[in-house]
């Protein structure tokens, strides 16, 4: 992580005082979870706007560097949503995504980022209600964890060691 861009403790304190609104990046697969998010919209379910969605064709496309980049550029949390096991539009690529996510969590730990900040879940094209719930839950969870303190994270060189 680039230390120049890290927030200071003072900034964190300020965030706590003014009411912390977490920034979360959501990576959604096109076929199930993005469609599930659309369903939540069609049903006009409401959820807070803290999760910003990046669409990918499949969670198999998830590159761990996307998550690291998100944390580097100011995300307090990341959520990856894919098809339910067995439902993947591309056969079984969501399983690969699950495997990569597990490895990613270990890398995040090395940096000092809690596993709870990077969630993987399944949302089908029909589960608008689940989408709204999952989004609501992660926002609450990250809100409780507070902002990611970038000043305290290990540097890339330290992790590579």
């Amino acid at each position: 992580m680039n230390s120049q861009e890290s927030e200071t403790d003072q900034e964190l304190l300020k965030a706590k005082q003014t009411g912390f609104e977490p920034k979360i990046v959501g990576f959604l697969c096109n076929w199930c979870s993005y469609a599930g998010a659309d369903k939540a919209g069609l049903a006009q379910l409401s959820y807070p706007p803290n999760v910003r969605v990046v669409k990918i064709m499949c969670t198999g496309r998830m590159d761990p560097q996307f998550v690291l980049h998100a944390f580097d550029k100011g995300a307090d949390g990341v959520i990856i949503l894919g098809c339910h096991p067995g439902d993947c539009h591309y056969k079984e690529q969501n399983y690969r995504a699950v495997q990569r996510h597990r490895i990613l969590l270990r890398i995040l730990r090395e940096f000092g980022i809690s596993e709870e900040r990077c969630l993987f879940d399944f949302v089908s094209a029909a589960e608008g209600e689940k989408y709204a719930r999952v989004i609501g839950n992660i926002i609450e969870k990250i809100r409780a964890l507070g902002p990611l303190n970038r000043a305290k994270l290990a540097s890339k060189d330290q992790v590579l060691e």
């Binding site: 990046v54 980049h69 998100a70």
Partner: peptide, 13 residues
């Protein structure tokens, strides 16, 4: 990668 990384950065700006 460039397009997705740019999108991530944009979403966090």
């Amino acid at each position: 990668n460039e397009e997705i990384l740019e999108e991530i950065e944009g979403m966090l700006s």
